[in-house]
């Protein structure tokens, strides 16, 4: 564990708390892509199957359980508790275009032909693109509530912090995980556009609005 990864994980936790806080205080999940949230559940469940057979640390265990539980809770908030505020008509990204290629990539690039290894790879690839339905929705509506942009910024910060973490690990452990790093770089790249608007508008006190 190094500070980059630690603060990355904290940022990831923070993003989830921000999202839950947003839904509760506004009593609405408007502006949140249900599809992205479903993809996160799929990511966590397929990656953390190792909860059942391997022990890393208490930190690792608690975080994994939290990510699975909180992502399921968010689906519940969106589909049951605040269902009327969820508008599927603007959440139109075709998820099959993400899941299919990720499944193919996982079958080609993995660390061993075991179900758990292929699913682990799949979850890494899927996480890297899971935010796309959300970003697509943002693009379509052209604006976002400030709290929603804080959620995305925290999520993007988590991914960004993993990059110095890998550089640190490369020097301290002499190894780089090619699958995690490649997918991670792609994932961080997806946030660049968002970050630009976030830093130039939201953090200057303006509303998140995309040029028409």
């Amino acid at each position: 564990m190094n500070i980059f990864r630690f603060f990355g994980d904290i940022s990831h936790l923070a993003s989830i708390f921000i999202l839950i806080h947003k839904i509760h205080t506004s009593r609405s999940c408007r502006g949140i892509s249900f599809k992205t949230q479903v993809l996160y559940v799929a990511v966590f469940v397929t990656r953390y199957l190792d909860l059942l057979y391997s022990w890393v640390s208490l930190y690792n265990f608690v975080m994994k359980v939290f990510f699975i539980a909180s992502s399921c809770y968010i689906l519940y908030l969106m589909k049951v508790r605040f269902r009327p505020t969820n508008d599927p008509s603007i959440d139109t990204f075709r998820v099959e275009y993400l899941v299919g290629p990720c499944a193919v990539l996982a079958l080609i690039f993995n660390y061993g032909y075991a179900v758990t290894e292929v699913l682990w790879s799949f979850s890494i690839f899927l996480e890297s693109v899971a935010i796309l339905p959300q970003l697509f929705m943002l693009q379509r509506t052209g604006e976002a509530e400030t709290i929603t942009t804080h959620y995305l910024a925290a999520l993007g910060a988590y991914r960004t912090l993993y990059i110095p973490n890998w550089i640190y690990r490369y020097f301290s452990e002499g190894y780089v995980d090619p699958i995690a790093v490649t997918a991670g770089l792609v994932q961080t790249g997806l946030y660049l556009d968002f970050f630009y608007v976030y830093f130039t508008k939201v953090l200057q006190g303006q509303k998140f609005e995309l040029p028409a």
Binding site: D9, V56, S57, K64, F67, Y111, Y175, D177, I179
Partner: peptide, 10 residues
């Protein structure tokens, strides 16, 4: 193997 050690990442 290296990749096995790295499975400690979330």
């Amino acid at each position: 193997a290296g990749w096995d050690i790295w499975k400690d990442e979330l």
